[in-house]
Amino acid sequence: MIKITVKLIGPLINLAGFSEKTLEFPAETTVEEVLAALPIDPQRPKIVTRNGQAVAPGEKLKDGDRLAISPIYSGG
């Protein structure tokens, strides 16, 4: 198992019921699989970063990774 810290941003917090949590997943879990485990509409446009860098859905995660999931913002 690997530990992934999931950080949610904006209204995604209200959908999932938490803003930051460390979750356990099997080794080699992909970004997509983490997203699928969350109660967030997969169709909803979002930006996902891994340790602050953009990440592709199929990328495999490593133990200790931080995944930030945000709606698309366009500025104040």
Binding site: K7, I9, G10, P11, I47, S70, Y73
Partner: peptide, 18 residues
């Protein structure tokens, strides 16, 4: 979408992450 739960202020956490 719940956008105005945080309105523009959600951007702070995102900027902090990236």
């Amino acid at each position: 979408t719940g956008w105005s739960i945080q309105s523009t202020t959600g951007v702070l956490s995102w900027c902090n992450e990236v």
